[in-house]
Simulated assay, not measured.
Amino acid sequence: MANDLNLCQFIGRLGADPEIRFLPSGEPVANMRIACSESWKNKQTGQKDERTEWVSLVMFGSLASMVEKFWQKGTQVYVAGKMRTRKWSDQQGNDRYSTEVIVNQVQTLKDGRQNGQQPQGQQAPQQGYQQQPSGMDFPDDGEIPF
């Protein structure tokens, strides 16, 4: 296959306020996790069952600045991007891996829940927001870490 597709889309709720850091160039980077839940009725017990998956997100540049202003813990959001796995070493020198979604498109969803409301006096953009390419990309060395 000439072109593969690396596209992830999620709707979920922020587990905490976005964490903002800055690259040496001054470009902002936002890290956060969202909870994506599914529920169903257990056929054996008749009870409602639920499972939650936590998804790690990374955003750069103007997208990171926007979510810092308008997103907070509990906000329901739509995100789209590409999955990346990074390799790093812990303090003991052991190789560790982290899988995250490099987000390039977001939308704040209105759901009417109190903890998903924006701070007083601020209104999040109603339509989606797409990251413009910043020229920063992670090297793709073709090495699969597993």
Results as ranks from 00 to 15, higher is better:
Ala2Cys: 10
Leu5Phe: 05
Asn6Ser: 04
Leu7Tyr: 11
Cys8Arg: 13
Cys8Tyr: 04
Arg13Val: 02
Arg13Tyr: 10
Asp17Pro: 02
Pro18Cys: 10
Glu19Asn: 15
Glu19Cys: 13
Arg21Tyr: 02
Ser25Leu: 00
Glu27Arg: 11
Glu27Pro: 00
Pro28Asn: 05
Pro28Lys: 06
Val29Lys: 12
Val29Ala: 11
Met32Asn: 11
Arg33Asn: 10
Arg33His: 12
Ile34Gly: 05
Ala35Met: 02
Ser37Val: 01
Glu38Asp: 12
Ser39Ile: 00
Trp40Leu: 02
Trp40Asp: 02
Trp40Phe: 01
Lys48Thr: 14
Lys48Arg: 14
Asp49Gly: 14
Glu50Trp: 02
Arg51His: 12
Arg51Phe: 06
Thr52Gln: 07
Glu53Asp: 11
Glu53Arg: 12
Ser56Val: 06
Val58Thr: 15
Val58His: 09
Met59Gly: 03
Ser65Ala: 15
Trp71Val: 06
Trp71Met: 15
Gly74Asn: 09
Thr75Glu: 01
Thr75Ala: 15
Val77Ala: 08
Gly81Ile: 07
Lys82Asp: 11
Met83Pro: 03
Gln91Ala: 15
Gln92Pro: 00
Gly93Leu: 02
Asp95Lys: 13
Ser98Met: 10
Thr99Ala: 07
Val101Arg: 04
Ile102Cys: 14
Val106Pro: 06
Gln107Trp: 03
Gln107Thr: 06
Thr108Asn: 09
Leu109Ala: 12
Lys110His: 11
Asp111Met: 01
Gly112Met: 04
Gln114Ala: 13
Gln114Ile: 00
Gln117Gly: 00
Gln117Trp: 01
Gln118Ser: 14
Gln120Leu: 01
Gly121Cys: 06
Gln126Glu: 15
Gln130Lys: 14
Gln131Val: 04
Pro133Met: 00
Ser134Met: 09
Gly135Cys: 08
Pro139His: 11
Asp140Pro: 01
Asp141His: 09
Ile144Ala: 12
Pro145Tyr: 02
Phe146Leu: 06
